[in-house]
Every structure is written in structure tokens, then in C-alpha cells.
């Protein structure tokens, strides 16, 4: 039996279909989850996909964080279930305090949409084991609220514990502190990042490369070997 990976759809989610597709291409069974359903339907891991859930009203991710499905996801994530937050999903994870810090408007106030070079800093999380530490990858980046902020102490802690999972290369696209593109929790099961690996899983579309596929093969290997 293959592993089941859930992808949550909130009102305003955009990238759930691409995330489901990436799960399928990696060889796992994609499962659609609905924001009002507390039941996770026996999935082994969850992806919170990108988009503009609840129109980014109040703050990006602030309203989704209180949806019924998130109650279950927060409990399960604390118990060790792997969760990946991409873009708006990353914003939801910080609002839910599953990851430290917060996301703010890009420092230049423009929406960004481009291929972005990243360095994988931590290849030991549940979602990055198929990469090598220091590996450079290129995946699409597209957001308005991508500026990662946290207080100095939190940033030092993240660095010391190796929890900065990804850093922007060739210029900081949004003013994120210390060029942080993504982070993980202390256990390594919860990972959030602003760029979109699910848009880079086939040579035909996206960046023309498959640099993002490793997220989904990493988690599949981990679940199969668990």
C-alpha cells in the first residue's frame, strides 16, 4: 500500500491541484482535504498549498489557521505527522505557531513571479532528505507577502539548530531576514517555504527542470521506510 498524502483546499487556495499532481508524480497517493472537514482521512502527511486563502484578509493565513481542518493538523503535526507549507501554506504554519516568526509584505511592495535559485541548507528534514546539504535548486517564486521576519534570538536559534532549511541565492527577492526562504520545526517534520517546488516537478512546465520533485520523493521514502 502506498503512502497517502493530503493536500488541503481552503477558500482561495490556488495551487492544490499542482500539489496533488506533484504527489502523484512522486508515486504517492494524493488525497484532497477540505478546510471544513476535521477528518484527515488516514493521510500520512499533509501539504498546505499556495494561494490566497480568505483573500489574505486580516493577515495572510490568519483566518485559515482557525479552520476546522487546522485543529487536527496542528495536533497531528505536534505528534510528528509531516506537514509541508508552501507559500500561503508557510504563512498559515507561522500563524498557527507551528513554525516561528511571521510573513510580511515584500519590502519593495511588488508582487514577485520568477524562477528563484535556492540553497538547500538542511537535507535532513522529512521533506528534504532527497537533496544534499548545500545543493542549489531553482523553483518558481510568486508572492506578495514573502518577507520572513523573526526576532534576533529566534533567528540565532534557527541558525544554530540548522533549522534554516532554504536560503535565497543571487539576491534577496523580498527582504526576508538573513535571506531565509524556508525553515523547519525542531523535530524536522514541519517545513515551510515561500517558493513553489510543486510547480517544478516535470521538465515540460515551470522552470523546465524537476528541482522541486525531491520534496515529494523525500517524504514518500520517509513514509515507506517508517
Amino acid at each position: 500500500m502506498t503512502s497517502r498524502i493530503g493536500v488541503v483546499t481552503f477558500p482561495g487556495t490556488l495551487d492544490d491541484q499542482d500539489a496533488l499532481r506533484a504527489v502523484r508524480i512522486a508515486g504517492a497517493e494524493p488525497v484532497s482535504l477540505w478546510h471544513r472537514d476535521k477528518d484527515l482521512h488516514q493521510v500520512d502527511a499533509v501539504v498546505l498549498a499556495g494561494g490566497f486563502s480568505y483573500g489574505d484578509y486580516l493577515r495572510a493565513g490568519a483566518i485559515s489557521r482557525f479552520s476546522p481542518v487546522m485543529d487536527t493538523i496542528i495536533d497531528q503535526a505536534k505528534a510528528g505527522m509531516p506537514v509541508l507549507g508552501i507559500c500561503n501554506g508557510f504563512q498559515i504554519l507561522t500563524e498557527a505557531h507551528l513554525l516561528p516568526g511571521a510573513m510580511l509584505r515584500n519590502n519593495h511592495l511588488h508582487f514577485i513571479c520568477r524562477d528563484q535559485k535556492l540553497r538547500v541548507e538542511n537535507a535532513e528534514t522529512a521533506w528534504t532528505a532527497d537533496y544534499e546539504a548545500g545543493q542549489e535548486i531553482s523553483v518558481p517564486l510568486k508572492n506578495m507577502d514573502g518577507r520572513y521576519v523573526a526576532d534576533e534570538r529566534t533567528l540565532d536559534e534557527l541558525e544554530a539548530e540548522g533549522r534554516v532549511a532554504f536560503r535565497y541565492l543571487d539576491g534577496n527577492p523580498n527582504g526576508s531576514l538573513r535571506d531565509i526562504a524556508g525553515i523547519s520545526n525542531a523535530a524536522g517534520n514541519v517545513v515551510g517555504l515561500m517558493p513553489h517546488p510543486e510547480h517544478a516537478v516535470e521538465p515540460l512546465v515551470g522552470t523546465g527542470r524537476t528541482d522541486g520533485l525531491g520534496f515529494f520523493t523525500s517524504i514518500l521514502k520517509k513514509l515507506v521506510n517508517a
Binding site: 486580516l58 493577515r59 490568519a62 500563524e95 516568526g101 511571521a102 521576519v149
Partner: peptide
């Protein structure tokens, strides 16, 4: 808990 995010 909701109106403000006290992290920022």
C-alpha cells in the same frame, strides 16, 4: 490570538 499577530 486573532486580530493581532503578536510576533510582529
Amino acid at each position: 490570538t486573532f486580530l493581532a499577530n503578536t510576533v510582529i
